[in-house]
Nucleic acid binder design. Structure first.
Lengths: 234, 234
DNA sequence: GTTTCTACTGACAAAAGCTGTCAGTGACGG
DNA sequence: CCGTCACTGACAGCTTTTGTCAGTAGAAAC
């Protein structure tokens, strides 16, 4: 049921965004032509779904539109399970616990024919604890510091052995497959710097708070990186 | 959207009933053949709608369908989002699409204060497509072969350059952070063998099916590995 | 035991629907 | 005026869906 699935995806996409989405964005996202998006929008409207659109602006869906209850097909359940296993193995332990908890909640409401996919999923992510705690060193403290916007003091040792102590403003964490890096504003250099978590020798969260701005934020850093490399980081 | 409308009507009809409805009753009500009703019921079931049915009795919708939306807290939403990003970046493209779709569904039913976490989550997983398609080579075909229990013919090149052609029985895929390996029963060696996906030069799924047994299955392989290493693979 | 009935599945040809491409329209801005 | 953009209509080709019919399995009746 390809088209019906897509219509449902359209409603969730349009409902999830604060800002509008253009037909071009929707067609890119869903892998169909813009003409098909126009048809889909019309179909939804004819079916009573309150899609709002303005020429030259884009579409959105009223936040008050009630979606049907949550359903996942087999593919989606497998993807969610694989994601939870990846987080459990390659995220920090707290993150892993939350991933497992959320999966238990999802499994609990699945119909019987999907419920036992966890036990039988042939997509494994081994937990080799020593290796993985090495790569997620300090992750939990840093996630909290990012959220609370607290400055952090670190002792860092570069690959070549050179050590430094810095006070930084943590903005985000990036997973590169095994290795995590921290994106931060470094007061020592007065610029963005990235630090591999496994090379942070010591870390202390300070009481001191920081502010972000248009020119000092994770999004700003990502725009700079995209301009340099043209790569997609989400 | 005749069929999509009808599927929606089916869920509505089945949900509002205390008693079951037969395929004949449903076909009369919706003006289609019974064969079409059987197909619709199967489609709904495959999409994760919990339709229950008994031979000679009829259909109804599981009480699960009427449960309140799942409730996730902020930590769980973040863990799910990180998992989806990891799958999108380090799983194969199809798996990534399913991860994103399932996340949109979850986000759509969240309260407003949690819905926009996707846009703001400071935990990133870059998509560097060339690298990641390298590591997930043949993943989609292999997932299908595992599920359908179809033998596969591969040309494999080891790290030292030695090449071989084998017919194998694919049992599972393992993610080691960047690298994926295939666990298979190798007919050439009459034993389990693992193969890095990025070293499979060529792969063809055969029509030929295989059986698993207590002594030839992913679970058996994992028990052997645990006895050797004592590590936790889930 | 056999026969009949019912619910369901697979296969097939025909019908219906869907898709992307392309031309055209209207609104807007320069 | 021209160019751009969002959208609509038309069309050929492709994909999906449909109803019919034969077959299967299980249960009930004889």
């Amino acid at each position: 049921m390809l088209r019906a699935e897509r219509l449902f995806q359209l409603t969730t996409l349009l409902r999830n965004r604060r800002t509008v989405l253009t037909a071009k964005q929707l067609s890119d996202h869903l892998g169909v032509s813009e003409r098909t998006i126009y048809r889909d929008i019309q179909s939804l409207s004819l079916s009573g779904v309150p899609v709002e659109g303005e020429a030259g602006v884009g579409y959105r869906l009223s936040r008050h539109y009630q979606l049907p209850p949550l359903m996942f097909d087999r593919h989606e359940v497998e993807a969610l399970l694989l994601g939870a296993r990846m987080v459990a193995s390659w995220g920090d332990p707290e993150m892993g616990r939350h991933a497992k908890q959320s999966m238990q909640k999802i499994l609990a409401v699945l119909p019987d024919n999907l419920r036992h996919h966890d036990e039988n999923l042939p997509l494994l992510v081994p937990q080799i604890n020593e290796a993985q705690h090495f790569y997620t060193a300090h992750s939990q403290a840093l996630r909290s510091a990012i959220r609370e916007r607290q400055r952090v003091e670190i002792d860092y040792q570069r690959e070549d052995g050179e050590a430094s102590t810095r006070t930084i403003e943590s903005l985000g964490l990036i997973f590169w497959g095994k290795v995590w890096t921290l994106v931060a504003w470094c007061q020592l250099r007065n610029d963005y710097r990235t630090f591999r978590l496994d090379r942070i020798q010591y870390l202390r969260v300070l009481e001191d708070k920081f502010e972000t701005s248009d020119n000092k934020s994770l999004n700003h850093y990502l725009k700079l990186m995209e301009n340099q490399c043209g790569q997609n980081t989400n």
